[in-house]
Design a protein around this nucleic acid. Structure first.
Ligand code: SF4
Ligand code: SF4
Lengths: 152, 152
DNA sequence: GCAATCCGGACCGGAAAGGTCCGGATTAGC
DNA sequence: GCTAATCCGGACCTTTCCGGTCCGGATTGC
């Protein structure tokens, strides 16, 4: 169904929750706050830390902390970090495996523009756009999808 | 990897191949022409016929035929026919299953604009855009992604 | 009547995702 | 220095879904 993995979804949720708390937050803490199982949250955090989106502070009183404000985190970065590069089919540039019908296939390589279109549409969205309207400083319901209007 | 299913990919390939041949074409014929396994092609054709994108003529000398020119077939229709409705997460309108963290989740419902953005980006693409440049009447390499430029 | 072809469904296997767990390393606090 | 808390890296299993195959039945042209 062109669905992105649950882990990616959870990652966004965790990131938004990280933005709310000020200091470092432990994994079990975030798990309780989001309603996701604790080991799963830990796994997501580990992947995100590996991608450089969050920073893990070890030792007692440790936890995780954002390395950037979520307003400067494109959604594509999170997807790429967890699900790998965006590749609709096996014959786009970022794909690894190749299909066996690639010689006879008449549309070989023609997926690239489509792939790029989706990537562009997603790169204009940041995690902040997915986050809940915190204090609503400007206009909460007026621009829920401002950067998305470019497609229309 | 935000990858659409192979069946959908095959469907596009078969559709483009259907456009090339004039009359009806049998499933084994298409299989040989595309390099895809015959039962798989048959399965794809069945699904497409069920969705109304192609028409199956039974009996001897039968086969499949397009109901519309591929230039008027949006890509979303093919995806929806095979992979089901486009739903990035479990909490968008078109999704069936619901995640258990939907009450505590702060981004619940915020995926909808993203989902819509992708759907819009895809609805502007037709199968003809994926098809190979048949006779190249205008300019083959000049406009490979004309309808996609709206996102930039 | 016969052969060719689509139609609908059931069926199975393998891969991938989701989820869980443990031992080790690191650091704050006492 | 010792203990407790916490991240880190990986291995592990379990389940689900996708890709692929197959068969009996219905329909039509010759
Ligand atoms: S070569 Fe053709 S069949 Fe293979 S992945 Fe690309 S579009 Fe699909
Ligand atoms: S409610 Fe939250 S966790 Fe559940 S599918 Fe929606 S965004 Fe993801």
């Amino acid at each position: 169904m062109l669905r992105l993995s649950k882990l990616t979804d959870y990652a966004v949720v965790v990131l938004t929750r990280l933005e709310e708390g000020e200091g470092v937050q432990a994994a079990p803490d975030l798990a309780a706050a989001t309603g996701i199982a604790e080991p799963t949250v830990a796994k997501v955090l580990k992947i995100l830390a590996h991608a450089g989106l969050v920073e893990g502070l070890r030792g007692a009183r440790g936890g995780y902390r954002l390395t950037r404000p979520i307003a400067e985190m494109p959604l594509t970065e999170v997807i790429t970090a967890i699900d790998g590069p965006i590749a609709l089919t096996a014959c786009v540039d970022s794909a690894v495996g190749h299909c066996e019908a690639e010689d006879l296939c008449p549309v070989r390589g023609r997926w690239d523009p489509v792939n790029r279109a989706i990537r562009d549409a997603l790169s204009g969205i940041t995690i902040a756009d997915l986050a809940p309207p915190r204090a609503a400083p400007v206009a909460p319901p007026a621009r829920p999808a401002a950067p998305l209007a470019a497609t229309a």
